[in-house]
Design a protein around this nucleic acid. Sequence first.
DNA 1: ATGAATAAATTTATATGTAAAATAGGTCAA
DNA 2: TTGACCTATTTTACATATAAATTTATTCAT
Lengths: 172, 172
Amino acid sequence: MQTPDIQNSARPLDDEPNLTARQKAETRFWLQVLNVNKLIYGDLNSALNDHFGLSVAKFDVLAQLHRHPEGVPMGELSRSLKVSNGNVSGLVSRLRKDGLVDRLATKADRRSFRASLTEKGRKVFEEAIKLHRQVVSEKLQNVSLSDIDAVTSGLRAMSMKTRSGVEEEVNA
Amino acid sequence: MQTPDIQNSARPLDDEPNLTARQKAETRFWLQVLNVNKLIYGDLNSALNDHFGLSVAKFDVLAQLHRHPEGVPMGELSRSLKVSNGNVSGLVSRLRKDGLVDRLATKADRRSFRASLTEKGRKVFEEAIKLHRQVVSEKLQNVSLSDIDAVTSGLRAMSMKTRSGVEEEVNA
DNA sequence: ATGAATAAATTTATATGTAAAATAGGTCAA
DNA sequence: TTGACCTATTTTACATATAAATTTATTCAT
């Protein structure tokens, strides 16, 4: 008795037998998304960390707060960043320890408060976003503008056509 | 004295003044990658978890081991998954606790061993990969095959042209 | 007004990820 | 052979992420 299984199993995810062309294409697509994501994310994270002591997660919080100088309630921050409440709690408390973020009390509701940038936070973010753009630019330096635009609009069409697993606001 | 800063700062990342068209395009591209990644990753993770008690991280380990029934040394696993040694240590030890992975001693070198799928691990993976494909398919159900292929080849071209922050093997 | 339900945010437990230190085995020059 | 240096892996300390439990405050029907 031979062991043909060994030969059958030594294949990449998109090269199994009995897959339709469509299925292979879908898997290849997803592997490329993961690949590009990891390629850019890692360097972005290191660069932000080295220069400003920021992670991408912290940067994302600062970016939201920068768009809303009047401050953003924790729950809204959680929804707009699409991460859990608990995650935002931790991020904001670390950013407060860093001196980049403040809490503003909400008069009408003592449970709630708004997170907002400190002056230092605003300055740090405005430098960090320049670095952010630099890193993304470097990663894409050999890609033509038209290729970037083509992929972007393809991805955008996908995210609009993609049925999200959760119910979505119609007017979100 | 007015406060014009408040108006200037309430903008999305790709809509700052004084950005070139190229810079805006790069930022939009990156935001779409993050977006699509999060859109698919989350559901994939929940589905694998609900049905098989697997995370995407664990699934990725199983996928590598499935391609190498003779087992894969820890260091090689770390390199092929592009995650740290410590991360692989933890994943493999949890997968061993789950009964999906085994350690095979290496005769010539007592420091090293190969991780390999147990029979149960192989069976679980072979079911899990079907679910993996289903979930990705559902996410892309409204997108045409030609659009998927176009974006995939765009992304693939990018990852090839992208200068990685670290030195790369020429023959990797 | 009071008690039940709801809501905002935090805390807890756990998984995943990194970088850096520690452990332990291998290699090799002198 | 022994000491210095590699190498494979694990451990530690920490950041980030989730889900579920908890805390505290608000709302609302009675």
